[in-house]
Simulated assay, not measured.
Amino acid sequence: MTFDRRITPFRADLADEKLRGHVEAERFSTGTKKRVTASVASLHRHPSREAPVDTQAIRGESVTVYDEHEGWAWVQLHDDGYVGYLPGAALSEPGPEPTHRVGAIRTFIYPGPNLKLPNEGFLTLNTKLAVTGIEGEYARLAGGGYVFAAHLTDLDFAETDYVSIAERLEHTPYLWGGKSSVGLDCSGLAQTVLTAAGIKSPRDSDMQEKLLGAAVEVKPDLSGLRRGDLVFWKGHVGLMRDGASLIHATGHSMTVYVEPLAVAEKRIRETSYGPISSVKRLR
């Protein structure tokens, strides 16, 4: 059997108990459930801040911890299955189950229900929170802190137009591995907006291309596409804003950027990414 290292909790010395009989490892473990408490934490390929960042975890995400050593935790994220190393300080015991989700692009945590108090950090879109009560215009969080309640939605609320969320994220800086409103890469943008719309999405563009939606014919003149279609190249993805323009997180502008699809297609085709590989329609 072959396994994708990105989503397979396997090392030569340790593997998930579910892989017993499929891989050889010195020991197997069912792991321990924990929850991300940092606003955003980078998931590294190796236990080092200098190691490549494959993705990020955001507050409220559940993880399975298989190993902890010298301040690093080897984990699998529950939402998209990604495996890697998080700083141990970014995690805590699971605590109360989340009740709400951040629906704003970004919001702040305050020590009390007052906007004039010094904030204690930010929370990004899709952050999951356990709310224990409402005080005036603010939601009180389990574990402490307050968030402006109008910036929250019910946990199961789904946006009806995921492209509108991408539009709200326009000009967000490009960040390899990023999936917060502070920085996004191309597949991080797609996953983030689909998650906000209640659509489960894999993390990387090759996974998204394989698993999401139904194929749409790519015509030579690029006609026939519509808002919400996902356009894929080898290693890249963007969302159609309308029949002619694309919104994507791109290293070309180092931002979430809107441009004519024809312009993007020509430029990208002339790079190592090559021509459009497919278009997928979700709805």
Rank of each mutant, 00 (worst) to 15 (best):
residue 182 V to N: 14
residue 213 G to N: 02
residue 219 K to S: 13
residue 116 K to N: 15
residue 153 T to L: 08
residue 107 T to L: 10
residue 175 L to E: 12
residue 161 D to R: 02
residue 118 P to Q: 06
residue 184 L to Q: 01
residue 189 L to F: 01
residue 111 P to T: 03
residue 198 G to C: 01
residue 180 S to K: 08
residue 154 D to C: 02
residue 108 F to D: 14
residue 178 G to N: 08
residue 227 R to P: 07
residue 114 N to C: 12
residue 195 T to R: 14
residue 188 G to Y: 06
residue 203 R to H: 12
residue 146 Y to P: 04
residue 151 H to A: 10
residue 128 K to A: 14
residue 152 L to E: 09
residue 176 W to V: 04
residue 178 G to M: 08
residue 139 A to T: 01
residue 139 A to Y: 02
residue 141 L to W: 05
residue 175 L to P: 01
residue 137 E to G: 02
residue 103 G to E: 06
residue 110 Y to D: 03
residue 152 L to T: 07
residue 212 L to S: 03
residue 201 S to F: 02
residue 156 D to S: 13
residue 159 E to W: 13
residue 142 A to E: 11
residue 181 S to N: 09
residue 165 I to Q: 00
residue 157 F to H: 15
residue 200 K to M: 13
residue 150 A to C: 03
residue 164 S to R: 13
residue 177 G to K: 07
residue 120 E to A: 13
residue 147 V to K: 03
residue 117 L to H: 12
residue 174 Y to V: 08
residue 166 A to M: 04
residue 226 R to K: 15
residue 110 Y to A: 04
residue 148 F to D: 11
residue 203 R to S: 09
residue 123 L to Q: 09
residue 101 R to L: 02
residue 96 P to G: 00
residue 107 T to Q: 12
residue 216 V to L: 11
residue 144 G to F: 08
residue 117 L to W: 12
residue 188 G to P: 03
residue 120 E to Q: 13
residue 206 D to E: 12
residue 161 D to N: 09
residue 97 E to W: 01
residue 113 P to F: 03
residue 177 G to A: 07
residue 222 L to I: 11
residue 139 A to N: 02
residue 209 E to V: 11
residue 183 G to Y: 06
residue 156 D to E: 15
residue 225 L to Y: 08
residue 124 T to E: 06
residue 226 R to A: 15
residue 124 T to L: 03
residue 138 Y to N: 10
residue 188 G to L: 04
residue 101 R to F: 04
residue 221 D to S: 08
residue 186 C to T: 06
residue 200 K to P: 13
residue 218 V to D: 01
residue 178 G to W: 08
residue 105 I to K: 15
residue 219 K to F: 08
residue 122 F to I: 12
residue 98 P to Q: 01
residue 184 L to V: 00
residue 224 G to W: 06
residue 141 L to C: 03
residue 203 R to C: 09
residue 99 T to P: 05
residue 194 L to R: 05
residue 220 P to K: 09
residue 142 A to F: 05
residue 104 A to E: 09
residue 220 P to A: 12
residue 177 G to L: 07
residue 139 A to K: 01
residue 99 T to G: 05
residue 153 T to A: 09
residue 191 Q to V: 10
residue 151 H to W: 06
residue 214 A to Q: 14
residue 146 Y to C: 07
residue 148 F to K: 11
residue 137 E to T: 06
residue 97 E to F: 02
residue 202 P to G: 00
residue 158 A to P: 00
residue 133 G to C: 01
residue 217 E to S: 08
residue 181 S to F: 10
residue 131 V to W: 13
residue 214 A to Y: 14
residue 212 L to E: 00
residue 105 I to C: 11
residue 151 H to N: 13
residue 179 K to S: 10
residue 201 S to D: 03
residue 129 L to R: 07
residue 185 D to P: 06
residue 168 R to P: 02
residue 174 Y to C: 08
residue 160 T to L: 12
residue 106 R to S: 14
residue 180 S to D: 08
residue 178 G to C: 10
residue 188 G to V: 05
